[in-house]
């Protein structure tokens, strides 16, 4: 993972010699381990994000919220207060929203927090998340918080009331997050609400910038990191807030740089407009036909 280890904080790690990644060396675990990303060559130029602008920001909820990169962080209640505060401060500064079940003590950073509807009125928050039926009129964005399932029966009745959906693998669900994202993206488009209802997805399985990029290209506006933040910062669990904040900022900056590298390599200078749902930038390596149909992506070697 970018940005944490090594001599250059927040720099994407540089490596040498051939890849050891999945699917052909490491064992593939997820559908996205069979998905590769396009590189722009000859027909169009790639972009070098260190020298030319690549915009990584995305907007959620019709432009009411802005993320500096397509990333949302979720913090569990089992984490210590100092750790949570460190992460929240870093995310606030870096323009990344934090989903937090209990914001007590962090109200100051409320504009950077999504929290549960129970806290409506307790502070100024960026928005709320909860079960679709718990949607409450607060004047703030509300995200329907659901597990990874392709059963979208709940969607119709609440579509007019929600400004976003969080597909959270940590809530369970039997379907692959890639499939849920792709189908939900298409479902929202069919309803004509894709640009007003945001789609955030992720959870325990998200490992880094490559996963973020692939899920965004499959249709997510932003990808939620949970376990990977905890795991990456684990050695710091007992450290003080400012230490955690610094490392978390580096992690986010590193992720942002990796996302920009991938976008630039694909010849994309704007993630919000160009990558979200752009399955044309992806190809499947040896994925069966039925899964490819659910994802609407082409096979490696197809034009």
């Amino acid at each position: 993972m970018a940005g944490v280890v090594g001599r250059q904080p927040a720099e994407p790690p540089i490596v040498s010699m051939g890849s050891t990644g999945p699917p052909y060396v490491e064992e593939p675990f997820f559908i996205r381990d069979h998905i590769v990303i396009d590189g722009a060559q000859v027909t169009r130029p790639s972009i070098d994000p260190y020298r030319e602008p690549v915009e990584s920001h995305v907007y959620l909820c019709g432009g009411r919220l802005r993320l500096s990169m397509p990333v949302v962080v979720k913090l569990g209640h089992h984490l210590s207060n100092s750790f949570r505060e460190g992460v929240v401060r870093a995310c606030y500064c870096m323009g990344v929203l934090v989903m937090i079940d209990n914001p007590t003590g962090l109200e100051k950073y409320g504009e950077g927090l999504l929290t549960e509807p129970a806290y409506v009125g307790d502070g100024v928050y960026a928005g709320y998340y909860g079960e679709p039926s718990r949607c409450r009129e607060s004047g703030k964005p509300f995200f329907a918080h659901v597990g990874a399932s392709t059963d979208f029966l709940w969607l119709g009745p609440v579509l007019e009331h929600v400004s976003g959906i969080v597909v959270d693998e940590d809530l369970g669900g039997v379907d692959d997050v890639e499939v849920v994202v792709s189908l939900l993206d298409r479902e929202l488009r069919r309803h004509g609400v894709r640009n007003s209802v945001s789609l955030v997805a992720g959870g325990w399985s998200v490992r880094g910038a490559d996963d973020v990029f692939k899920l965004v290209a499959l249709g997510a506006d932003a990808v939620m990191l949970s376990t990977c933040v905890e795991k990456t910062l684990e050695p710091l669990l007992t450290h003080d807030t400012s230490h955690v904040r610094e490392k978390m900022e580096n992690l986010l900056l590193g992720l942002q740089r990796e996302i920009k590298l991938l976008a630039g390599a694909a010849g994309v200078s704007n993630i919000f407009n160009t990558i979200v749902g752009n399955r044309e930038l992806l190809r499947a390596v040896e994925l069966p036909r039925d899964i490819r149909a659910l994802l609407s992506i082409k096979l490696a070697g197809e034009g």
Binding site: E55, G62, S196, N270, N273
Partner: peptide, 25 residues
Amino acid sequence: VNGFEDDLDRVDEYVRWRGTGLDGP
């Protein structure tokens, strides 16, 4: 033409029509 964010007049309009911007050459 899909201008840079700093040159945007109205974010809500831009978001509303997201997907119409052309990227690349």
